[in-house]
Nucleic acid binder design. Structure first.
Length: 192
DNA sequence: AGGAAGATCTACT
DNA sequence: GTAGATCTTCCTA
């Protein structure tokens, strides 16, 4: 299992979001390992992006972390759900990638317990759901996913072919014109 | 104190 | 499929 290097995240958020599809998100929980394939992401920019947490009226730690080093985790609460982001941007720019959906691979029973649902398709097919399934919350703010010994990291997935589709972002009141949501076409774990 | 926020659950047309 | 209540911080007044 190869952990993604920090360099991976030092690029344009939209590019990182796209390439994150098919990668594996690993969550170490005590001795157990929960893992899922990333099947849906969204890119967010700095204050020029009205939906970004860098725009005014957002929690200040969000603003701070968005300017921070790529590869760090940003978690923040909205509508009673924790949303899991990874900082990603070119040098001296601002941005992040939101992980919207996973396809569960390991520790599925554990995820079911955390989510209290039976259907596997309801486990991680939404940003608020996957954080519950993986027990991710505010504590992880500022921790880097490129740290091998960390509790959360991202590794290379299998080499497989899949089609990437894009659309406008979901739930955003003021979106940009660009399509910044990316997902694996035909995958059942993609939300909606 | 008030309100808004990258959502989710439930209960229906 | 859509509609509404409810969700938990954090910002601004």
């Amino acid at each position: 299992m190869k952990v993604l290097p920090k360099k991976f995240f030092e690029r344009d958020p939209a590019l990182v979001a796209k390439e994150l599809l098919g990668k594996i998100l690993v969550r170490k929980l005590n001795s157990k390992i929960l893992a899922g394939k990333i099947v849906e992401t969204e890119a967010y920019y700095g204050k020029e992006d009205p939906a970004s947490r860098a725009s005014s009226g957002r929690p200040k730690y969000c603003v701070k972390l968005l300017h921070d080093d790529p590869g760090k985790i940003l978690v923040y609460m909205v509508h009673g759900n924790w949303l899991f982001n990874i900082i990603a941007h070119e040098k001296r720019k601002v941005g992040a990638v939101l992980i919207r959906a996973l396809e569960p691979l390991r520790g599925i029973e554990e995820m079911k317990k955390n989510r209290k649902v039976k259907k596997i398709f309801d486990l991680t097919n939404g940003p608020g759901k996957l954080t519950k399934a993986l027990k991710i919350d505010k504590r992880f703010n500022g921790i880097s996913v490129t740290d091998k010994n960390g509790e959360i990291l991202i590794v290379e997935g299998k080499k497989e072919k899949f089609e990437i589709a894009s659309s406008h972002r979901i739930g955003v009141t003021k979106d940009l014109k660009r399509k910044l949501r990316f997902y694996v076409k035909g995958n059942r774990f993609v939300s909606r």
